[in-house]
């Protein structure tokens, strides 16, 4: 009996040495790229545009998407209604701007965020219903309403990351964060 325990303990040791050989526990199921994509139903759009899907949309098309899916909550042209204002002048906020007036043209620092967030979380009660073309279009419309792009500029994976947001000029890394993470740079 004693001996049996001894061998059991020994094999458990050998096993854990094996399992932890590469410092790993060998728990979890490996996924291939396609399986990852199936899980990743709302991929993140990085500030450099990585993750943007194919497709495109114009300001005119966006006006229709907006009227159908967004106006009810954000006002007929983005001025705000039941919920957040989306439209402002295309000048960065100052320290005097009332925060109720913070919106895309004066506070948002990356145009890619608008695609990422709209596809990820809007319309509020029915997220995920818009096609990629519709998201590009409504993004174009909102950027146009904010005076950030021209009416004739369609938005797609090439044009959107190039859009400069006025408030980017105000954005800086928190100095405490910079001290702790010296390598950290804002895109």
């Amino acid at each position: 009996m004693r001996r049996k325990w001894f061998y059991l303990a020994l094999s458990a040791l050998a096993l854990s040495a094996l399992v932890l050989a590469q410092g790993r526990y060998q728990i979890g199921t490996p996924l291939n790229e396609q399986e990852v994509q199936e899980w990743n139903i709302r991929p993140s759009i990085l500030a450099n545009g990585i993750g943007l899907p194919p497709g495109q949309g114009t300001v005119d098309e966006g006006a229709k998407v907006y009227a159908t899916h967004c106006a009810g909550c954000h006002g007929s042209s983005g001025e705000g209604g039941a919920f957040t204002r989306l439209v402002s002048e295309p000048f960065p906020i100052t320290k005097e701007t009332d925060s109720v007036d913070f919106a895309i043209g004066n506070y948002w620092q990356y145009a890619t965020t608008l695609f990422d967030y709209t596809r990820r979380a809007m319309p509020f009660a029915t997220p995920g219903i818009l096609s990629n073309d519709e998201v590009y279009a409504v993004v174009a419309y909102i950027l146009y309403q904010n005076g950030v792009i021209d009416e004739s500029e369609p938005m797609n994976a090439q044009t959107l990351p190039r859009v400069q947001m006025p408030a980017r000029a105000l954005l800086e890394l928190d100095p405490g964060t910079q001290k702790r993470f010296p390598w950290l740079k804002l895109p």
């Binding site: 925060s99 895309i104 948002w108 620092q109 965020t113 408030a167 954005l171 890394l173 928190d174 950290l184």
Partner: peptide, 18 residues
């Protein structure tokens, strides 16, 4: 970006004020 960034007295917006 739009939320959880801090506006400072000098008018700058600080990101990652964690």
């Amino acid at each position: 970006t739009s939320e959880y960034t801090d506006v400072m007295a000098d008018g700058k917006i600080y990101a990652f004020t964690w």
